[in-house]
Nucleic acid binder design. Sequence first.
DNA 1: CATTATAATTGTACATGTACAATTTATCAA
DNA 2: TTGATAAATTGTACATGTACAATTATAATG
Lengths: 236, 236
Amino acid sequence: MLKYQQTATEIEAYIERHALQQGDKLPVLDQLIRQFEVSKTTMTKALELLERKGTIFQVRGSGIFVRKTNRKGYIELFSTQGFKQNLVEHDIQSKVLSFELIPCPEEIIENLGSPPGEMVYAIKRIRYIDGNIMCLEESYYRQTIVPYLNREIVEQSIFEYLETALGLNIGFSDMYMHVGKLPDSIAQFLELEAGDPALTVETIFHLTNGRPFDYSVITYHYEHSQFVVQANGLYL
Amino acid sequence: MLKYQQTATEIEAYIERHALQQGDKLPVLDQLIRQFEVSKTTMTKALELLERKGTIFQVRGSGIFVRKTNRKGYIELFSTQGFKQNLVEHDIQSKVLSFELIPCPEEIIENLGSPPGEMVYAIKRIRYIDGNIMCLEESYYRQTIVPYLNREIVEQSIFEYLETALGLNIGFSDMYMHVGKLPDSIAQFLELEAGDPALTVETIFHLTNGRPFDYSVITYHYEHSQFVVQANGLYL
DNA sequence: CATTATAATTGTACATGTACAATTTATCAA
DNA sequence: TTGATAAATTGTACATGTACAATTATAATG
């Protein structure tokens, strides 16, 4: 683990240990540097990371303050997959509806940039959050990049397997979101009525080297999912 | 404008000028440093900014590559307000339904952290994208921070006024999203039926110093809005 | 010709240091 | 007490430099 990531984790632990709340002030930068025994660069990067994550905000001339949402039960939309809720990890279960290795379907090719005839793992599963149906997920993994998957892995967290067991470096993703009426074919999986509202999120995941390896379509159960995003201005 | 922001803008111009496409390689770091005549720190920060923005991605040992979505017509969800679409700014119009200065309503107080009795500008407007109804927006601005607003400003871009005319520094925001069925009261503004699907986004905007100044609830027209987010892993 | 080992390329991590801008605190005048 | 002014505090911008890890290109080997 990189030093600035490690430092960020330690600062999070510090916040937790001291039970700091929204708006509470952290030690001054110089103090943090001495306290955690890192250089200014490293501390700055650690703080920047936490700022992007929404854990703190920094005010020049004033100090470094913790940032917390006061709402509970929201899913963090950008938790690099792996549905995390505010502070609390929740109980996520998966029921695998289908799992097969097939030639990449036409309509997926453009999203994954697959060469013709490439094989992909096609997985359909229902995901539960604390016992409630959260979403239906259909995902496609390029076998060229993910050489092996099995039903057991797919019942757990696929991404954790990719990162730890396969050592893949997940980089960035393009997400496309829209709202619409549920078609009957999907409604039945979510135990909802056709025509009910639904949020659909298509995501193309890339490795750090830019190669797309996973295309997924997630349809959320509108009653069992709400999202929080702690954003930082992009300016420019 | 800061040097690294300026540099980032110039690199964007470079990409545009050379008509670089998805996956095309930029000059190597050292070359960029010489070419744009900045230090390594500045160039790195500029590139990091563009990476967060989703304009490029960097691969160690390999190079810097441009990143572009191939889909058109999606609204960038995190364009620091000011609905921007992929590359193209679109024609945004606003119809002001109501504009008043009132004591902060009960249910808004907790979101804005207003002291009791504080006055807020309450604005309700419909926003059109290329002539189509995009969303209904209800927003509340604390008069303590935004001392003056008028109907004319509100018909244009409020945020631009805040930043340029008032010199406010917009920092970060908390967004809460959920999907549901339209109540009749809102459906009529969007020219939809009650029960139709809708995405509702509540946002609390803060200044760089952490003070919340704007709470807004936006209900999107499900047929005239879809969103793109180009995310970068957060790790940790 | 394919494979493996080696070297060159290229971006990232990290350290140190200077200057500065936004904020807060202290000081002083009215 | 109030309000302006100066000083101290504190984070950010920016420059330079070293070391290193991931990738790619090259050379050596069978």
